[in-house]
Amino acid sequence: MSDPGLLREQRRERLFFVGLAWPAIVIVGVSAMAPIFWILGQSFQTVAGEATLGNYDKILSSGLTWSSLGTTLALSLSTLIICVVLGVPLALALASANRRVANRVLILIMLPLWTSILVRTYGWLVLLRRDGLVNSTLAWLGVIDQPLPLVYNFTGALIGMTHYMLPLFVLPVYAAMRDIDGNVVRAAASLGAGFWRCVATVILPLASGGLTSGSMIVFIYTLGFFITPAVLGGGKVNPIAIRIERTLSTFQDWGGASALGMLLLLLILIAGCMFAAIRRLAREKVHYA
């Protein structure tokens, strides 16, 4: 049986640390929740301040809203897929490399995050335009006869978003793979499992927590992207964030913009719950395995 004195001491210690964190929790909670409740209230008001459900009826009956929703999901899913395809092999290579080499490569991977997102986005605009470095190089090599449409479209926005999110995906995946006991992998190899079988049946299941966390970061973060689609999309790519901005700047419609904001928040909450459920299922599967 547990010692009652020890339990009281542990309870007292937990209360002490909660007390230390309480001021920060209150400040962060109020700062985060107050604007959300204000936007929620605005979404149910007319311009004259009267209560109404018309803002939600207007946005849900508009084809532009559903088009923006589809564009948002397409951008987020496409960014996630590319980050998984590029990030998992990179994280695996880093986890298998010497720690000193891995740390140096990680610094290179993190370098883009030290630069303003606006600067990086306009950098991609210079690289991807019709007379930019990418098209000029491909034409010089004889690969293309006409410049490729790499900017002011979905492709340009996707490239910029992937460039921003890839480091944020690699970090948790690399951390999870680095924590895997090498003896487990060597045991699987000694029992006849080849490289790809070890990856599929040992490494990826054990790194499922990092994979889920990285995927959640990428997908949820990109749902609210604004600058990159606005610049690299050239007005042709309009996710919900851009529609919110145009609803405010063009029509000064706080009610409609707030309703769109709550729709985006609902989408984020649904995505968060889905990833949390996936992570829990993956953890239970690894535990029982």
Rank of each mutant, 00 (worst) to 15 (best):
P4M: 01
P4I: 03
P4H: 05
L6S: 07
L7N: 08
R8P: 10
R8I: 06
F16K: 10
V18R: 14
L20H: 02
P23H: 09
V26C: 08
V28Y: 13
V30E: 03
V30F: 03
S31K: 11
A32G: 08
M33E: 13
P35N: 03
I36A: 14
F37G: 14
W38V: 14
L40E: 03
L40I: 06
Q42I: 08
S43L: 06
F44C: 02
T46L: 12
E50V: 09
E50I: 03
E50W: 06
K58T: 07
K58F: 14
S61R: 13
S62A: 15
G63V: 09
G63C: 12
S67F: 01
L69C: 11
G70C: 08
G70R: 10
A74S: 04
S76A: 04
S76N: 04
L77K: 00
I81E: 05
I82H: 00
V84Y: 15
V84A: 12
G87P: 04
P89E: 06
A91T: 02
L92A: 13
L94F: 01
A95P: 07
A95V: 03
R99D: 15
R100L: 15
A102T: 07
R104P: 08
L108C: 06
L113R: 04
L118G: 11
Y122R: 02
Y122K: 01
L125R: 02
L127A: 06
L128D: 00
L128P: 04
R129G: 02
L133Q: 02
T137N: 08
T137A: 06
A139I: 10
A139K: 14
G142W: 11
I144N: 01
P147V: 01
P149R: 03
P149Y: 02
V151E: 05
N153R: 03
A157F: 07
I159V: 04
M165R: 07
M165V: 02
P167V: 00
L168F: 12
F169M: 00
V173K: 14
V173S: 08
V173Q: 08
A175L: 12
A176H: 06
M177I: 05
D179R: 15
D181M: 13
V184C: 08
R186Y: 14
R186E: 12
R186M: 14
A187G: 09
A188Q: 11
S190H: 04
S190Y: 10
A193Y: 08
F195Q: 15
F195E: 15
R197P: 12
C198P: 06
V199S: 07
A200Y: 12
T201S: 14
A207E: 08
A207W: 10
S208F: 01
S213Q: 13
M216Y: 03
M216D: 06
Y221L: 15
G224D: 00
T228I: 02
A230Y: 09
V231S: 00
V231L: 03
L232K: 02
K236P: 09
V237T: 00
N238H: 11
E245W: 12
T247S: 03
L248E: 09
S249D: 11
S249K: 12
S249C: 04
F251N: 13
F251P: 12
D253Q: 13
W254V: 15
W254N: 15
A257D: 10
S258W: 09
L260V: 07
L260R: 03
G261E: 01
M262N: 05
L263H: 07
L266W: 11
L267K: 06
L267W: 00
I270R: 07
A271T: 07
C273P: 08
M274D: 08
A276H: 09
A277E: 00
R280S: 02
A282S: 13
A282H: 10
K285D: 14
